[in-house]
């Protein structure tokens, strides 16, 4: 009998893992213990990083890829996929993360950018990438560079959902408009969004982004998760919102259940009860650094 030839690193395989993460919660964790709490609570994946965004904001300085030892520790602590962050444009960090066999790389504005013009050429990697976006043009540029999953950026480490809502609405709103555009208008959309025409044409036919769209940045409560899921996100990333709250294990499980039952207000009311204090929130206008402005 002929043996099957295995093809690895294909778009189908890379985008496929993003499909498997849908309807789930991806949680930021800084050590193996937090990773186990996240997995216990039902996280679909964890993001291994040295400091959660709210601490990066507080500490200042340059934020970089995490120590490989810490990433290995988290990998061996859990059975679910492990993601890790590389700086924007820092392809050497991404190469290291690939060699560590992380399951997804987040080319992330939460870390300090390494290149102010170029993002990583993500086609050059076998491991899939997720990238942030504040609008549809940014999302499509990242997809054209090879990203297999887009997350709206929000404003990480603030516990304030307002920017996440702005970004997910900007992306889904423009998608809706493109589905109404005629062929001549599609050229103008490509020019306006500084994005490749074939991707614009694909959206006009399918009415959706070519890859899954998740939401990140500012999610702190079960209701926040429900809000962005109802606005069109297919999963949520929760960073500081869990481990900077009073009772991380309980809040993590509540956000997982809220993401599954995002349209069921009764269930949401039930899981929102008695969770203790959420993470302290920040006003966007008082921020010194806006992480979501990073990326081009």
């Amino acid at each position: 009998m002929n043996e099957a030839v295995r093809e690895t690193g294909t778009q189908l395989v890379k985008r496929g893992l993003a499909e498997m993460l849908k309807g789930g919660v991806i949680m930021d964790v800084v050590d193996a213990e937090q990773a186990r709490i996240a997995e216990d609570a039902g996280a679909a994946a964890v993001m291994a990083l040295e400091r959660v965004p709210s601490d990066i904001r507080k500490d200042g300085g340059v934020a970089r890829m995490s120590d490989p030892e810490m990433i290995e520790g988290i990998k061996s602590a859990v059975t679910i996929p492990v993601m890790a962050k590389a700086r924007i444009g820092h392809f050497a960090e991404a190469q290291i993360l690939q060699s560590l066999e992380v399951d997804y790389i987040d080319e992330s504005e939460v870390l300090t950018p390494a290149d102010e013009t170029h993002h990583i050429d993500k086609w050059a990697f076998e491991v899939p990438f997720v990238c942030g976006a504040t609008n549809l043009g940014e999302a499509l540029r990242r997809i054209s560079e090879g990203a297999c999953l887009i997350r709206s950026k929000g404003e990480a480490g603030t516990g304030n959902i307002v920017e996440a809502v702005r970004h997910i609405r900007a992306i889904t709103g423009d998608i809706r408009k493109i589905t109404q555009a005629d062929n001549a208008e599609l050229f103008d959309w490509a020019k306006k969004l500084q994005s490749p025409l074939p991707l614009i044409q694909e959206i006009s036919e399918t009415g959706r982004l070519p890859v899954p769209i998740f939401c990140a940045g500012g999610i702190a409560t079960p209701a926040d998760a429900s809000l962005v899921m109802q606005l069109g996100a297919e999963s949520v990333f929760v960073g500081s919102g869990i481990f900077k709250s009073e009772d991380p294990a309980q809040r993590a499980q509540a956000i997982v259940e809220a993401t599954t039952n995002f349209a069921d207000a009764e269930k949401l009311a039930k899981v929102s009860r008695g969770l203790g204090e959420a993470m302290p929130g920040l006003e966007i206008e008082n921020l010194e650094t806006r992480l979501s402005d990073r990326g081009w």
Partner: peptide, 24 residues
């Protein structure tokens, strides 16, 4: 994930191969 793959599968009763996508 790095070992995730696709391959043509011979499935009992199918005349042509089926593309199998294996993810973790």
């Amino acid at each position: 994930q790095l070992a995730s793959f696709e391959a043509d599968l011979q499935i009992t009763g199918f005349e042509t191969p089926f593309r199998g996508v294996f993810i973790r």
